[in-house]
Simulated scan of single mutants.
Amino acid sequence: MGVAGCGKSSLGAALAQAEGLPLIEGDDHHSPASREKMRQGIALTDADREGWLATLGQLLQAQPQGAVLTCSALKKAYRDRLRSACPGLRFAFLEIDRAHAGLRVAARAGTHFFSSALVDSQFATLESPVGEAGVLRLDALLDLPTLQQLASSWLATKEAA
Results as ranks from 00 to 15, higher is better:
residue 6 C to R: 05
residue 10 S to N: 10
residue 11 L to M: 07
residue 11 L to N: 11
residue 12 G to F: 02
residue 13 A to C: 02
residue 13 A to W: 00
residue 15 L to P: 13
residue 15 L to Y: 05
residue 16 A to P: 14
residue 19 E to L: 15
residue 24 I to G: 12
residue 24 I to N: 09
residue 25 E to I: 01
residue 27 D to M: 08
residue 28 D to Q: 13
residue 30 H to G: 06
residue 30 H to N: 08
residue 32 P to G: 06
residue 33 A to Y: 03
residue 34 S to N: 15
residue 36 E to R: 14
residue 38 M to G: 07
residue 39 R to I: 00
residue 39 R to H: 02
residue 41 G to I: 01
residue 45 T to N: 01
residue 45 T to W: 04
residue 52 W to V: 00
residue 53 L to Y: 01
residue 53 L to P: 10
residue 55 T to F: 05
residue 59 L to G: 09
residue 62 A to S: 13
residue 63 Q to I: 01
residue 65 Q to V: 07
residue 68 V to P: 11
residue 70 T to R: 01
residue 70 T to L: 00
residue 71 C to T: 07
residue 73 A to G: 08
residue 75 K to W: 00
residue 76 K to A: 15
residue 77 A to N: 09
residue 80 D to S: 12
residue 81 R to C: 11
residue 81 R to A: 13
residue 81 R to M: 09
residue 84 S to G: 04
residue 86 C to F: 09
residue 88 G to R: 01
residue 89 L to E: 08
residue 91 F to N: 02
residue 95 E to M: 11
residue 97 D to P: 01
residue 98 R to K: 11
residue 102 G to A: 03
residue 102 G to D: 00
residue 103 L to Q: 15
residue 103 L to N: 12
residue 105 V to Q: 07
residue 113 F to L: 10
residue 114 F to Y: 09
residue 115 S to Y: 02
residue 116 S to W: 00
residue 116 S to G: 10
residue 121 S to E: 05
residue 123 F to A: 07
residue 129 P to W: 00
residue 131 G to Y: 03
residue 136 L to K: 02
residue 139 D to Y: 01
residue 139 D to W: 00
residue 139 D to E: 04
residue 142 L to P: 03
residue 144 L to C: 05
residue 145 P to A: 08
residue 149 Q to M: 12
residue 149 Q to D: 14
residue 150 L to Y: 02
residue 153 S to K: 14
residue 153 S to A: 15
residue 154 W to E: 09
residue 155 L to R: 08
residue 155 L to P: 12
residue 156 A to H: 13
residue 157 T to F: 01
residue 157 T to R: 14
